[in-house]
Amino acid sequence: MAINKVVQTRAEAVQGIGDGSTVLISGFGAAGVPTDLIHALLDQGARDLTVVSNNAGTGDRGLAALLREGRVRRIVCSYPRSAGSIAFDELYAAGKIELELVPQGTLSERMRAAGAGIGAFYTPTGVGTKLAEGKEVREIDGREYVLEYPLKGDVALVEAESADRWGNLTYNKSARNFGPVMAMAADLTIVEARNIVELGQMNPETIVTPSIFVDRVFHVPAETASAA
């Protein structure tokens, strides 16, 4: 039977995401944020979520809307504050959201480890700082390293430039950012793609995320995509 990961509706795209899920959301600033999938998740109704994303949303759309609606219990990110991160800032000041602050390279490597089946890894990042408090430190070849564990998603929401029905993906410029690593780190990877192309149309040398990491593809043409 032909593999076809392309779903036709927003509801179908986010079907089955349960309360309490850990959701990885791609993007750095506004680049690469799957805004339409986030709004589909908002409509779908899952609550008590742990969101893993580099930033904590800005303005009133996308992640900021999910925060504002009280769907997120905990956020794991490297840099929550930015111009317009009002929804997060208010919840944080009111003590209404848990924040796990993770150095950006550790954040991406923890997800890479989850995707690669790595049980844990040692990194020099954060040695001697508050973010390493309580973590195992080991000296290897004369240098100190902190033990970090994988960060796995129940779900990943990823924005891509183009996808085919198998789920092969390409990205656009710096909107690639966390997409490929999140796609490999979740049990269910859902992609918002600007273009759907025929199987075989992508140059195999330039496919960035191979199809094996993708479960669902939802077409959001550029002209209808929501601004992040």
């Binding site: 840099y79 602050l101 950006q104 990194t123 020099p124 990042t125 700082t129």
Partner: peptide
């Protein structure tokens, strides 16, 4: 307490 911290890539860069 009213101003969230933000580490970004700073610790990785400082270490690496």
């Amino acid at each position: 307490p009213n101003f969230p911290p933000g580490v970004g890539g700073a610790m990785d860069l400082a270490a690496g």
